[in-house]
Design a protein around this nucleic acid. Sequence first.
DNA 1: ATTACTGCAAAGCATTTGCAAATGC
DNA 2: GCATTTGCAAATGCTTTGCAGTAAT
Lengths: 159, 159
Amino acid sequence: MEKPKDDQELAEEVRSSVDEAWPLFVDFLKKKQARVTQARKIVLRKVFSRHDHFCADDLAAELSSGLDHVSRGTVYRTLALMEEAGFVRVIRNTDGHAHYEHVFNHPNHEHMICDVCGEFIEFSDDRIAERIALACGQKNFAQRTYRIVVFGTCEACGR
Amino acid sequence: MEKPKDDQELAEEVRSSVDEAWPLFVDFLKKKQARVTQARKIVLRKVFSRHDHFCADDLAAELSSGLDHVSRGTVYRTLALMEEAGFVRVIRNTDGHAHYEHVFNHPNHEHMICDVCGEFIEFSDDRIAERIALACGQKNFAQRTYRIVVFGTCEACGR
DNA sequence: ATTACTGCAAAGCATTTGCAAATGC
DNA sequence: GCATTTGCAAATGCTTTGCAGTAAT
């Protein structure tokens, strides 16, 4: 049973996610012989300051015009790194945009996307993961990750 | 137990798919008060003349320079119609291209995409469909369709 | 000091769109 | 005959890239 989170709890969770994620990202960069830069820290912090899903371009827009300035190109490059590091997932909608979400402190879950309002609804089901693993075994396919998107109409829009 | 299909059987299957699909597409267009045109027929035939997956742009390229000429814009517009009609599915790869496949005479199935060679491997599992339906029920989400893509390495590339 | 990263603006590229001509109804 | 479609080419919009300057090691 999970009670709704209030603002303070959310803020807490954000802080801890960034605090946990950053050192891990630093490790990842070092292992890769890449550099630990301000821009990368700013992008990571921004990504974890959001709870919802966001699209690359919006993030780039926000960061390329604020105080902690990071250029569009760098935002895209950093998001690619973060995906490689496994901190972030891409979900390609039917529109051309790349939607991202962070996966840190966030159990495996999939999405329903409402055709009408575009809302993302999360769900998860361990059984599905099992069946997918099974199918991969049968095809001798070494699974790295998978993505499920269900399209349809959400409760609010259906009424 | 299914035996491998030889060329003649494949040709047969293609012919019958087109022959079955076209009248249905005509119905769809009429219901929509849209027009039954040559261009739409040509695109549909081309889509069903392919067994594999294809990307919108390749199809457009082939059709915009052949004898049965259809312009790029029209190919894109027609593919959108065919998707709406449920004859075709889009699978978005990580590259920006839209990959299509026809779903007529083709049971529900999902895909594994090899990171190395880009091959599409089909698989299906009714259990997964059940679990997804269940999850949608729980969220009061009216499911229209869904897509699963598993990323990883295929058998050949894994060796 | 060396090498990688960033910012900027320009290029890329699949897809969409506006509009005049063509076609289906 | 009238409205929808088509073809073409130009525009769009997200994303990537080249390069000169800047920052990290």
